[in-house]
Each structure stands twice: as C-alpha cells, then as structure tokens.
Nucleic acid binder design. Sequence first.
RNA 1: GUGGGUGUAGCUCAGCUGGUUAGAGCGCCAGGUUGUGGCCCUGGAGGUCGUGGGUUCAAGUCCCAUCACUCACCCCA
Length: 421
Amino acid sequence: MELFAPRGTNDILPDAVGGWQYLERIVRETCERYGYREIRLPLFEHTEVFARGVGETTDIVEKEMYTFQDRSGRSLTLRPEGTAQVVRAFIEHKLYGKALPFKVYYIGPMFRYERPQKGRYRQFHQFGVEALGSASPLLDVEMIALPISLYRAAGLHEFEVHINSIGCHVCRPAYREKLTAYLSERREALCPTCLERLERNPLRVLDCKNPGCREATEGAPKSHEHLCTECHDHFSTVRAGLDAVGIRYVLNPRLVRGLDYYSRTVFELIGLDLGAQDALGGGGRYDGLVEQCGGPPTPAVGFAVGMERLLLSLEARDALRSDGRAPQVYVAALGDAARSRALEIALAMRQAGLRTELDYEDRSLKAQMRTAQRSGAQYVVILGDDELAAGRAAVRKMATGEQSEVPLTGIVQWLEGRVNG
RNA sequence: GUGGGUGUAGCUCAGCUGGUUAGAGCGCCAGGUUGUGGCCCUGGAGGUCGUGGGUUCAAGUCCCAUCACUCACCCCA
C-alpha cells in the first residue's frame, strides 16, 4: 500500500454513511426543536482564537493543536473545538446587539494531535450547542436535557449524567486557595503530573485517575461546598430544575473539566460501552469567556458531543439505524437492444423520482437478479427481446415473487404507484 | 510523547518445534436451470505472507529495523 489516510483520520465509506446521516438528522431535528439554529464556521482560525479562547495552560493548546503558517506567515490552527470560534463570531458580528440569548448549534470535524485510540481520533466530529447572553439556570438545565433527549431519540439509553459547580471569579480563588493548601500537605502522595498541576491548575488534580492521587484527594474540599451566594443559588436552581424534569444525575465533586473557560455548572455525559475514552459529551457555563475575548460581559453556556463516540455506543448496543436507502427499482436487461432501452427506461424513472439501478455489464439474468436482490430493490424490471417486441416488460416484485406484464409506455406510472419509501 | 498487542486472499482468520506447488469460511464470477433472486451443489479468479535487511542449504515461521493498525497511559468529544 503506497498511499494511505493520515493517522487518526477515517474514511467514511458508503456503507457507513447512512448511519452518519441518520445521526446528523437526529442532531438537527433535536437542536431545532430546542430553538437552536445552525451556525457554520471555518475549519481553521487564527491561532490566537484558540490560544486565548480555550486557555493557554490547557493540554489542547499546549500540545494538541494542528498549527501551521499560511503563505503570508500568519499562524493558523485547525479547530480543536467549537466554543472559542462561536465566541469569536459572536463578537466579530456584534451579535450581542441582537436578541439574546443567541442560540446556535454546529456540527462538523475537529482536529487534535493526539495518539489515536478507541473513541479518539485526530480528525473527529462533534456537534455542539451554545447559548450566549443569558445567565438563567433554566438554560443550564436545557443544555443538559438536550443531549439526553437526543441520545434517546437516537436509540441510546445507557449513559450517566455527572454534574458539578466550580464557582465563579468571586468564589473560585478562595476555593482554590483551600484546595491548594489541602493538596500541599499531601505532596508526597501525588504523582509527578499532579505536582505540576498543583502549581498551574490545582482543580485538575481532582480528576487524576492515579490511585495514589485519588486517595489523597478523597477528603479534599469540594468546590460545590465553597460557592458564593450567587453561585450557590444558581446551582441549587439547576439541581431543582433537573429534578423537576426527571433527569437523574450524579453530583461528582471531581468533575472539573479540562478547559479553562468553564465556570459554575459543568457536566459530562458518560458512556458505558466506550472503554477508556468514555465521555460521550460534556459542557458547562463559561460566563467570563466572551469578555475575556474582547466582547462585552456575556454569560453563556454550552456543550459538545463526540459523534464517533455516539456511533460507537449505538453500535455496541446494536441500536444504530441508517438513513441509507436501497434502490426502489432495478432494471435487468438481456441483449444489446434491450440494454440500451433499459438505460432509457431507467433514466425516465429517475427523472420521475424513483431510485433506480441497472446492470451495466452483459451479465446473465441470474446474476442481475442476484445483484438486484442484494441491493434491496423492491421491483425488478426485466427487459429482453420478447418484451421489446411486445412493448411490455416483466416486472417482478421481489418480496413476493409475483410478476406482471406491464406496457412500456406506462411503466413509470405503474411503478410510481406501487413503490414505497 | 510512553508502553503492550497485531500485520497471511476484498473481509474474518488457520498455518505444529523453519522444510517442496500457502489454506479455510464468507464475499466475488461462472455453471447446475440455453431468460429469473433468496436455499443447495460444482467449478473459477484472487496472495510482493506490511516493508527492508539479517541468520540458514532452506524463512509466512527465527533476529533486527521500519511503517501501519490497535488498546492503554496522558487528556478529552
């Protein structure tokens, strides 16, 4: 093999596309039902958008970005996530001047330079939803409810909902102090990366998987118990809202999220069939990000879901459906004269809106019938010299095997009236 | 970036301690039905054994390197 796709990228072949189209349709229908409109943004941005938007100390920015220079020397980066660029577009087009909240969803490929493994690829696909311009806890609830109802619509019922609140610029510094003090007393128990985190981003020590670190942080101060009054009230209302709409969740004090822009509510949807990369989706509030990126103070909340992971989960449960559709009609022909007439008839049927396939090679009727049956075609039109002479075709309904003689002049209408789907 | 596993036909894989023309199932093509699918039977096409070195009389099999895939660490969707 000479040429191959770059590591971590995947070709989505025709047999798999139906599943993608199915999911994409569910995504669009669900998002629109919740009042979100699609936004389409560039696949690459000025590197600055992500460096400032995602956070300089995040792994994404430090080591996972596909960054390159264009011919004029500008530094550009293939988008590793969507929130930062939605914020950029929101500010650039001064959308804060329009009716708020600004509610959008996006769907498309993202790029991160990581070692691939199950559920993790260098080019992967996400859909995400963002609402900018409202601090209402009702939106937090809606943000959690949306992906859940989407999963259910798609056929996935096995997942957990984890939530937490990590406070805001008012209460987080104090909490951070407390946590740092607590962790500092247990330095010996922490892994090397956590010692690093202790300096730069102590909250991240909480979600380390290392057994030693987990033990050391067992009794650590919990962010949701150190919230300021506003954050506390907000979180209480979110939780009450979740209860009210019947969403069961786990309050997970270790859930802190890896991106710097989050504040207050954070949540993650954990898949049960995914191996190590088990986050189906996640998100939270990012009330300070718009201002930090140069816009007016604007509270916001959003989430993103990994499409491959959703697909993997559905496949694991044998629940993946497909929008791919089989031909309705297959035209089989015997002999040269019949074959050119077959093309004519097939084109007329396609013109009329019927999904029609035909045989291009000079193959036996048996071979054509086999191909037709495997394609899933509902009807086979059989054309030979006899039929040509008589001006009729034999039309076989594959499901039942019953066969009729249909005049060629009316065959399109005849099939239009009988075919389904 | 680090570690483990795996690379043999289009697909899934077998190939014993190195030994002659490398196999199976599925798929594909054809025939059995001189014009009819699903089941069955028969036959056929298809392989630089990932790649490059090395050891040996002899390498799919052993050694080294390399590439790719995969799982995990890390991190996240």
